[in-house]
Structure formats: structure tokens, C-alpha cells
């Protein structure tokens, strides 16, 4: 009987001993974590997309509480959420202008000159490493939906013309598509910015037009028609500088023969599809 009790007694003894150590450690080695970090983290979307420049939502919450960043830098949260966080932390929301991803190409299956058929598996980068895909243009969209697959927010869908269409409502300007595109065609720009170049061909004149119907042939009419300094030609492509002070007006695009510079009014490719309808 006695020997039977020895084992439980030892176990209880060990338990009490380590329990005491834990109790002491809890009392003297305690680290105070700001409860606001946890609460702020709860208010963040939890997608860990990295659009804010932080590795994830929790590090962003830590930076928020320490005041290093503004709640507005989270591009994924809704406006209400950002208000809530700002109110909770008693800071300025630091609202940022909404950015969306825009594709610098409008040469879909219907416009770009096709020189070969790509038979490999679906994926832009996979096609890009095999002879650069089937399109004659070496700079344009390959149309095999790497961006659609990379998008965290289901904001990109391929349209019938084989070009990605960005849903500006859903787009949170995380840089997923920018990193995924093997041709570096995506650019994050403010939603309010209407004037936009939809071509990436650094060739001029005939050479560009041979590759694609809607290529920029670097004629320079948009530069002449826009406010001075607003548009400049760099590497045979117009570059729009919104900070130049010139007022952007739709006039700049009127004389573009290939519609490679556009004035966006609505969704990115609606304009172009209606143009096809007109010509077809």
C-alpha cells in the first residue's frame, strides 16, 4: 500500500515545485503587451497582403499603436473600418487616395499580331520563358492570367479579348499583380487619374504598328495637345506627369490614331470594347 502511494506523491511534488516556479515567473517576469495592439489587429482585415509595406496585419497593428503609420495606409480596409481604427486609437485617419492597378497594354487577341501558337501550360511567365509566347509584341500582355491567379482579392478577371480586367471596386492596390506580371505591365495609380497610356512598346512608327493595331507609334500628338509639360515622350512612349501642374484634359487623346492613350471614364476596357463594336 505504501509503495503504491510513492509514485503519485512524487508526481504531486514535482507538479507543485514547477507550479511554484511558474507562479513566480508570472509575477516577476511579466511582459506588458499593449492591449490596443490586439484590439487594432481585430479591426484590420487580416489578409496579410502586404500592401501597406508591412509583413502582415499584426506588425501593421503594432506600428499603428506606436504611431509610426496612419490607419489610411491599409488599402484593404473599408472607409468605415479605417474610421473605427482612427477613432479607437485617437489618431488622424490619414486618408490616402484610392489606388487601383492599371494594365499598360490594350493589345488583346483581336489587336495584337499573333506569330505563333503557344502550346505549353497556361501561365504568362511559363510562356514568357518559351520564346516569349505567341504574340509578335515582346512587351505586351501575354493573356494567360498569371495576374488573375495571383490576385488576393479576386479583382482581376480575363475578358473575352484575353486581357485582364481590373474590378476597381475590389482592387485594393496590393502589389500582387505588379509582381506577378512577367512583362511588368501593371501600375498602381490613383483611381481619379483619368489620362492613361495603354501601351508598352518602345518602338516608333511602322515597327510598332506592325506588332499591334493599338500600339503607340510615338507620333507625339498627345504631347502637343496636352497642357505643356504634362506629357513627355520617353523611349517612344508618352509619360504622364500629374505633378507637373498642367491640367489633364480629355483633349490629349482625341487625335491618337491608335487609341493607345486613353481618357478613362468608366471601367478600363469598356471603352475599348465599345470601339470594337463600332468598327465591327
Amino acid at each position: 500500500m505504501n509503495s503504491m502511494l510513492v509514485a503519485p506523491a512524487i508526481m504531486v511534488g514535482i507538479g507543485l515545485f514547477f507550479g511554484t516556479i511558474l507562479a513566480i515567473a508570472q509575477r516577476f517576469l511579466k511582459v506588458d503587451e499593449d492591449p490596443r495592439i490586439e484590439a487594432t489587429n481585430e479591426l484590420l482585415p487580416g489578409t496579410n497582403c502586404g500592401a501597406c509595406g508591412q509583413p502582415g496585419c499584426l506588425p501593421f497593428a503594432e506600428k499603428l499603436v506606436s504611431g509610426e503609420v496612419d490607419p489610411g495606409q491599409c488599402t484593404v480596409s473599408t472607409d468605415d473600418n479605417i474610421e473605427q481604427i482612427a477613432e479607437y486609437l485617437q489618431v488622424d485617419a490619414g486618408r490616402q487616395e484610392k489606388l487601383v492597378a492599371r494594365l499598360r497594354c490594350s493589345g488583346g487577341h483581336l489587336q495584337a499580331n499573333q506569330i505563333a501558337e503557344y502550346l505549353g501550360f497556361e501561365g504568362c511567365r511559363a510562356a514568357a520563358v518559351v520564346s516569349g509566347g505567341g504574340k509578335g509584341c515582346s512587351w505586351g500582355c501575354l493573356g494567360l492570367a498569371d495576374c488573375e491567379r495571383a490576385c488576393t482579392f479576386d479583382a482581376i478577371h480575363m475578358n473575352a479579348n484575353g486581357l485582364p480586367q481590373v474590378d476597381t471596386e475590389k482592387c485594393r492596390a496590393c502589389p500582387d499583380c505588379v509582381a506577378a506580371c512577367p512583362r511588368d505591365l501593371f501600375e498602381l495609380m490613383p483611381l481619379s487619374q483619368n489620362l492613361y497610356v495603354q501601351c508598352n512598346i518602345p518602338l516608333a512608327g511602322e515597327a510598332a504598328i506592325q506588332l499591334c493595331e493599338v500600339a503607340c507609334d510615338a507620333c507625339g500628338k498627345c504631347v502637343a495637345d496636352a497642357a505643356p509639360g504634362l506629357i513627355t515622350m520617353q523611349d517612344n512612349l508618352p509619360v504622364i506627369d500629374y505633378s507637373s501642374g498642367g491640367e489633364p484634359r480629355p483633349d490629349a487623346v482625341f487625335r491618337c490614331a491608335t487609341h493607345s492613350i486613353v481618357w478613362l471614364e468608366r471601367e478600363q476596357f469598356q471603352e475599348q470594347e465599345s470601339r470594337q463594336a463600332r468598327s465591327g
Binding site: 505549353g120 501550360f121 501561365g123 511567365r125 511559363a126 514568357a128 520563358v129 518559351v130 505588379v178 509582381a179 506580371c181 512577367p182 511588368d184
Partner: peptide, 15 residues
């Protein structure tokens, strides 16, 4: 092809 794709992404990806 999948490995080639990954190598290209790792070496040419635009950060």
C-alpha cells in the same frame, strides 16, 4: 516548365 517559370520569377520579378 514549372521550374523554369519559378526561376524566371525569382530572377526577373519586379519588386
Amino acid at each position: 516548365q514549372l521550374i523554369r517559370t519559378a526561376k524566371d520569377d525569382l530572377t526577373h520579378r519586379k519588386e
